[in-house]
Computed example of a mutant assay.
Amino acid sequence: MSLRNEISLPTRPVLSHSADAVQANELLFVAGILPVDASGALVGEDDVSKQAQYVFAELDQILAAGGCDGTDVARINVYLTSIEDSSELDEPLLRTCGSARAAGTVVEVRALAVSGARIEIDATAVRSP
């Protein structure tokens, strides 16, 4: 049995040579999630709230595919094109993680890999035994 398993969901776009997540023992490393649909089209246009809702919903699906849920998230990184948008994270983060608090970082970046994207997230989760 392999201690490393790649997870790629058929509903997720292939934007680079990267799996959606990699499971290594009890750890689940979730790759960056951008607000794009299966065809690679931007979701939410210029609305960071809609983009945030979408990326966190995608995180929920990837976590489930790896046998986790939001309460298993140990670390989350958020990349925003404007730090002023950080208030838009509260509701989707609470919906995904509930009262569990992950270690987290929010960073402002000049641009993301998809034109028009205003948010990208990645995460690390620990599967419960």
Rank of each mutant, 00 (worst) to 15 (best):
104 G>L: 07
23 Q>W: 01
40 G>R: 04
24 A>H: 07
40 G>D: 02
79 Y>K: 15
7 I>K: 12
116 G>S: 04
63 L>D: 06
30 V>R: 02
112 L>H: 07
16 S>Q: 08
83 I>S: 07
110 R>T: 15
76 I>V: 13
74 A>L: 13
99 S>H: 05
115 S>R: 12
114 V>N: 04
18 S>Q: 15
7 I>R: 14
17 H>A: 13
129 P>W: 13
29 F>Q: 01
120 E>L: 12
14 V>L: 14
96 T>R: 10
57 A>H: 07
105 T>I: 12
121 I>T: 12
124 T>H: 09
35 P>Y: 07
48 V>K: 01
48 V>D: 00
23 Q>D: 06
50 K>S: 05
128 S>W: 14
29 F>E: 02
11 T>F: 03
40 G>T: 04
95 R>M: 10
54 Y>C: 02
110 R>V: 15
10 P>I: 11
126 V>F: 12
48 V>M: 00
21 A>F: 07
90 D>P: 05
24 A>G: 04
66 G>V: 10
30 V>L: 07
45 E>Y: 06
43 V>A: 09
116 G>W: 00
76 I>N: 03
67 G>M: 08
102 A>P: 15
76 I>Y: 02
94 L>M: 06
28 L>D: 01
6 E>P: 03
83 I>L: 14
33 I>T: 05
113 A>R: 14
71 T>L: 07
123 A>P: 10
59 L>Y: 02
91 E>F: 03
72 D>Y: 02
18 S>Y: 10
125 A>M: 03
39 S>C: 02
20 D>P: 10
17 H>Q: 13
58 E>A: 08
72 D>I: 01
44 G>H: 02
91 E>G: 03
103 A>Y: 08
45 E>T: 08
69 D>A: 06
44 G>D: 01
90 D>C: 06
52 A>G: 08
28 L>F: 02
60 D>W: 00
23 Q>A: 14
18 S>W: 09
25 N>V: 09
107 V>W: 05
32 G>P: 06
111 A>Y: 11
129 P>I: 11
30 V>M: 05
112 L>A: 10
26 E>S: 11
72 D>Q: 09
93 L>Q: 06
84 E>S: 15
24 A>K: 01
109 V>M: 13
68 C>F: 00
123 A>Y: 10
26 E>W: 06
119 I>A: 02
64 A>C: 07
59 L>E: 01
31 A>V: 09
24 A>N: 04
60 D>I: 00
65 A>E: 08
100 A>D: 12
36 V>W: 03
82 S>H: 15
108 E>Y: 10
34 L>W: 03
5 N>D: 06
2 S>F: 01
